[in-house]
Design a binder for these strands. Structure first.
Length: 318
DNA sequence: CTCGATCCCTGGACGC
DNA sequence: TGCGTCCAGGGATCGA
């Protein structure tokens, strides 16, 4: 369930483990979660991984500029400025989706099931990406395309100011849960931390953004930040199979107050925690501490759907 | 603009 | 033990 704290945990692990390494070669297997597989095969071999950053739920593996043999200038023009190569920022974007893992391995370690990408590193190890459900995403992006991609996303919830938070949340007619999950508004919040922060701030998930008071908005911003920082400290929540880059699970799931506790007693007031669908996601809340907004349309029970699926194996673009 | 619905995908839980 | 069904959810997309 990689959300901001889990991705931060993995990014820190990778920063310690593989920053500075050079990629020697790339092996792709299933590629339907990769924007442009050929670009990865073409651009990554030979490149240094300068550092690993988190951007929302993405990891950015920043790549060093390609070492090019400087062609001697045929004519030295005395007044010409020194030829400075244009700095083009380049990165490999990795989104872990629901079940993605990116971690270094020794080459003799057997390939885990669903290993779709292997980067051979210059110290002999392999950086492997596995993702059973392939809800993740991988893309090589450079220059304007990289900037354009990053600009699609909203503010980092760890660093957003009170004013900016209110500016993004308050005018909206959307439900607060939908706003928290909308990566164009805030980048990095997913279902777990949305529910946890709404419970702590005592706000009903179906409340409309513009109906939140200034006090509620600020409580929400502060609680969200506090919860995310605590979760980072505990290396994330391991509720399915999340592990960090070293294979270690996180501990924050021990601290969940509402997520996954439907039917159990609210830890504040003892009322029974409910679960409803808001913005298409199961949302856990205390009906007593987080009173429903006015109107009958806020308390739909979760539907039980039945769907069928059939789909041949894909091995191309998205 | 915002909504729900639908799809993608697989492993795990559960009922029989 | 095995099979069918449901469910998890981030994100894209589509029509209302």
């Amino acid at each position: 369930m990689p959300e901001l704290p889990e991705v931060e945990t993995v990014a820190r692990g990778l920063q310690a483990a593989v920053a500075g390494r050079r990629i020697l070669s790339v092996t792709l297997r299933k590629t339907d979660f990769i924007d442009d597989p050929a670009a990865i095969e073409r651009e990554l071999p030979g490149r240094h991984i300068v550092r690993i950053e988190r951007f929302g739920k993405f990891m950015l593996l920043r790549l060093a500029e390609r070492v090019s043999v400087p062609a001697p200038a045929p004519v030295a023009v005395e007044s010409a400025p020194a030829r400075v190569p244009a700095r083009v920022s380049e990165a490999l974007l990795v989104h872990l989706g629901m079940t993605g893992h990116l971690a270094p391995h020794l080459p003799e370690q057997p390939l885990a099931k669903h290993t779709h990408v292997t980067f051979t590193l210059d110290d002999g190890r392999e950086l492997r990406y596995t993702d059973a459900r392939r809800f993740g995403r991988m893309a090589y992006l450079a220059g304007p395309a990289l900037n354009a991609e990053l600009e699609r996303f909203g503010a980092d919830p760890l660093h957003i100011s009170a004013q900016e938070f209110a500016r993004r949340m308050h005018p909206s007619k959307a439900r607060i849960k939908a706003l928290l999950l909308d990566q164009r508004v805030l980048r990095g919040v997913g279902n777990i931390y949305a529910d946890e922060s709404l419970w702590t701030a005592k706000i009903h998930p179906a409340k409309i953004g513009r109906r939140l008071t200034a006090t509620e908005l600020e409580a929400l911003r502060k609680e969200l930040r506090k919860i995310l920082l605590k979760a980072i400290e505990l290396r994330g929540s391991s509720i399915s199979d999340f592990v960090d880059a070293g294979g270690v699970p996180g501990d924050y799931q021990q601290h969940h107050k509402v997520y996954g506790r439907a039917g159990q007693a609210c830890l504040r007031c003892g009322a029974k925690i409910k679960r409803i669908l808001v913005a298409g996601r199961s949302s856990h809340f205390c009906p007593n501490c987080q009173p429903a907004p006015r109107g009958p349309h806020h308390l739909r029970p979760r539907r039980s759907k039945k769907t069928k699926r059939n789909r041949p194996n894909a091995t191309s673009k998205r």
